[in-house]
Structure formats: structure tokens, C-alpha cells
Nucleic acid binder design. Structure first.
Lengths: 129, 129
DNA sequence: CCCGTACATAGATATCTGTCAAATTAGAAA
DNA sequence: TTTCTAATTTGACAGATATCTATGTACGGG
């Protein structure tokens, strides 16, 4: 948050006085906000993890055991376990062991926050549409 | 789309007849859908590119010249150019050269599609909330 | 035409990431 | 306890990625 409050608006003005760009409209993401949010998107920026998330979310009851997830891919159990760990460490899912099996479920609030951030009403990404 | 229509629901049933999971609720992402969508999220899964997108989107008039973007970072112009290329190849932004400067703008439809996919009303990620 | 500025490309390199095989932990059942 | 199954951890390795320097291209002004 140190060099981020520099007047970005003043940039792009050459000596002739002709600005190359219009000023800002909404408030852009700060460096620290971006650093905080990027890992969330990185967690779902993989086809396997996207499908894992989808499979977990679509399960009636809201939770899925790892055995079902592993069965849906050509990948080895360690690889699935790795991807689940990435999703969990990002805060997108949570898990609990019950007996032999481990169950995973999604945390919808986090997904909703990410969705809102890139959605049409976002205060940091409000499009021109 | 080959092995994806396998009965995932049947997995997780052990010999004792006790299922470890409930069946599916909504329709999960297919392998090809995930392969198509993941690169979109990968494009914004970087703090620099997230801020670039935000800076571009927040610019009044809907477009920004590269000089402004480069000025907002500690990175070299080639690095910014690289990230803009990644965003453009993913289809999130577009650009045009006008005289000396090159202008970038976002494509809100694509962002909106991504937002809807992970949002609360998603048919492939409908949460338990 | 030549020069300077804005931006992109090419090449090099250090780091990160996805995957697997092998070993490990946790629980259930005999 | 011993054994079997479910899931995770570890270690290794190939491939991707973010960044830089150096070079190239496009445009405008003398």
C-alpha cells in the first residue's frame, strides 16, 4: 500500500500536453488486494480442480468422499489429494474424516466473493457494459 | 466426453452395501468444459494481471494506454507487455494501436460468464447456501 | 531521411507446478 | 495384534511461467 497511492491519473501526459488516456472511473485493485485475491483464482485455474470443485458442489448433501472424486479422473489418488489440498489451503473447500472416509464440501461464501469481484457490479472491475 | 458419462453415482459403494456419499444434485463440469474454462481463470490468477485488468476496467472511457499501465508497476515494459498478451490471448481484453500509443479495453461479457460460473446460481457449482 | 519514443518480441534463467511411485498414517475388521 | 482399505505425505522430475536484458518494429517530428 506504499507506492500504490501514487497519482496514476497523472501518468500518460506527454510534454505536448496531450493525454493518452482518460482518468480513472472506479477504484482499481491495490497491490495487496491483488496479492490476496490472486491465489483464490489460481486455485481454480486448473481443469482438474475446477471439476473437483464442481463435483463436490453438485453432490446432494453438499459433501463428497474422496473415493468418488478419485473415481472420476484418470489420475492417481496422490494427485487428487494434492489438488484437494490446494483447494483447501486456498479456503475454497473444507473437509472432515468420518471413519474410513474423508468428506469434502465447498465454502460457498468464498466462491460468491470471487464471483462478485469479477461480476458486472464489481467496484474494482466494473466493465463498460 | 468419453469416460465422463460413467456412473459416478455408483462409485463409493463398498461391499457391505453402505454408500459413502449421496448422489449428484446439479450437473458437474465435463472434462472438456473444464479444459475450456480453466485458462480463463488462469489468466486472472496472477496479482499483476488482476491489477492490470482492474486498472483497465476502471478507466473512464473503457480503455487505457500501455504507458499508464506500465507506470503503475515496478516491472519492466516487456513484463507488462507479456501479461497483457496473456490476458488478450485468453480473450479477456482487446487492443488497438492509435498513433504512438496502444490502447487496451476489457471484454465484459467474458468476465460476466466467468462470474456466473462460480456464482450462487451456477448450474455446475451451485453451493449448499 | 534520421532520430526519439512507445511498445512488442526473442532469448535466458530461476522458480513454480502437475504428476507419479513409494512410503506413511488412520481407521475398521478379523 | 495383524491385516486390509482409504487417504495423505514425500521425493523426484518434466514442463510451464514470470521476469529480466537485448533487440526489433511502428509511428511521429524534425
Amino acid at each position: 500500500m506504499s507506492k500504490q497511492e501514487l497519482p496514476i491519473i497523472d501518468a500518460g501526459v506527454d510534454v505536448s500536453g496531450a493525454a493518452c488516456c482518460a482518468p480513472l472511473a472506479c477504484e482499481p485493485l491495490s497491490e495487496s488486494e491483488a496479492a490476496e485475491l490472486a491465489p483464490l483464482f489460481k486455485a481454480i485455474a486448473d481443469p482438474v480442480r475446477l471439476r473437483l470443485l464442481s463435483l463436490i458442489a453438485c453432490h446432494k448433501g453438499g459433501e463428497t468422499c474422496v473415493c468418488d472424486l478419485t473415481a472420476a479422473f484418470d489420475l492417481t489418488p496422490p494427485t487428487i489429494s494434492h489438488h484437494l489440498k490446494v483447494l483447501k489451503q486456498a479456503g475454497l473447500i473444507d473437509s472432515e474424516r468420518r471413519g474410513t472416509w474423508v468428506y469434502y464440501w465447498i465454502k460457498p461464501e468464498v466462491l460468491a466473493r470471487m464471483s462478485a469481484l469479477i461480476g458486472p457490479a464489481s467496484p474494482v472491475l466494473a466493465g463498460t457494459a
